[in-house]
Design a protein around this nucleic acid. Structure first.
Lengths: 193, 193
DNA sequence: CGGTATTGTCAGTAAAGACTGACAAGTCAA
DNA sequence: TTGACTTGTCAGTCTTTACTGACAATACCG
């Protein structure tokens, strides 16, 4: 409980803190909890796997929060459990190649968010088509508007399909050598504007 | 003020509502306010530009909320103001091509979020390098750890640079014919897994 | 210009999301 | 198995974000 003086100004801690804070901001920006991002950053920087107590002390968070955040990171395949023989505590480590990590994130996001949304769009499109045709058959005055709505909805559904194709193409070339080559090419594409 | 009965069950309204709700969810998923997404969806579906009162009634939101959301949509270049001569009210309409809209979104996101973050990463990398070299010069025991941290941070900064190149390449091919051709190609890239 | 219809702003409030800490459940050495 | 240590869960609380509605500012008509 007593206030111990800092053992040293700790240049290392300061460097790490900046990076951790920044990664937290980036995460928040992309819809990921800030704390989740900070833990990930800490593990990415660490030379060896860390246990929960070390993480909670370093980032000043409760172990409940830490436990939940780690569950998230595991679900996103951003970190791995490490078991050390003769050690009760569970340790965690992060993937060290950012592109491999990013690739895993995109795959997960595709699975959770893109696929369900694409499916929902198809259902909505089908429903719109049925409504429009039914209005035709009934000679309803809405028929024209319904066909128009169907066309706009179908156009958006097609966009979503193509968007998913783009993601699939990215996942196919992946974090490996082909992906690396393409990213090198990207560097030399003449900029717009 | 009196309760008028619905004029009809309105198949059109139901079709629109489904699409609007879904777009709202998609928006929320990508860090955009749900209401902002719903207004955008409504304008995308509408055959003619709409004024604020129509939007507030249709989506059951306050005009304050609507005003703020429309400001956001304008800032994202997702909708346009339309002035009709001899009409006091301002009308709004949405871009009708989803890829053109998406392109504008990405450009804006790059400007607001990617560029500042890439810059911050460079600063952090420089700072880490300076600290590591200073520790070397001082013969500090932290020197090894600092060089290690610098390497990891630099690796991530490089990833961010490449990520930005990828976005720039996308923006360069754009929503035009070249982009369309590439999206067609994407469709036939063999899938991973 | 004065009057009115429309839009913008923002303080206060409501809703959603994140965090803590107490307790439960699980794990492992002895 | 027991007992100590570690991790998981979740009700309650705190923080952040979204929304409403009253008032202010603006634009346009006659």
């Amino acid at each position: 409980m007593s206030q111990r003086p800092q053992t040293s100004p700790k240049a290392l801690t300061e460097v790490e803190d900046r990076f951790i804070a920044q990664w937290g901001e980036i995460s928040a920006l992309w819809g990921v909890n800030r704390t989740v991002g900070r833990i990930h950053a800490l593990l990415y920087l660490s030379r060896q796997p860390l246990d929960m107590e070390t993480i909670t002390k370093r980032l000043q968070i409760s172990h409940g929060n830490c436990s939940t955040s780690i569950r998230d990171l595991l679900a996103w395949n951003s970190i791995r459990r490490v078991h050390v023989p003769g050690e009760r505590r569970v340790l965690y480590e992060s993937e060290q190649d950012p592109w491999t990590w990013f690739h895993a994130c995109i795959r997960e996001r595709r699975r959770r968010e893109v696929v369900p949304v694409v499916d929902a769009m198809h259902e909505i499109t089908d429903h719109a088509k049925l409504s429009a045709d039914a209005a035709d058959a009934a000679g309803s005055p809405e028929a024209g508007d319904l066909h128009d709505a169907f066309e706009r909805i179908a156009r958006f559904a097609k966009f979503m399909d193509e968007f998913q194709d783009l993601i699939d193409a990215f996942l196919a070339v992946g974090a490996g050598p082909l992906g690396k080559a393409l990213r090198t090419v990207a560097k030399f594409v003449p900029k717009a504007r």
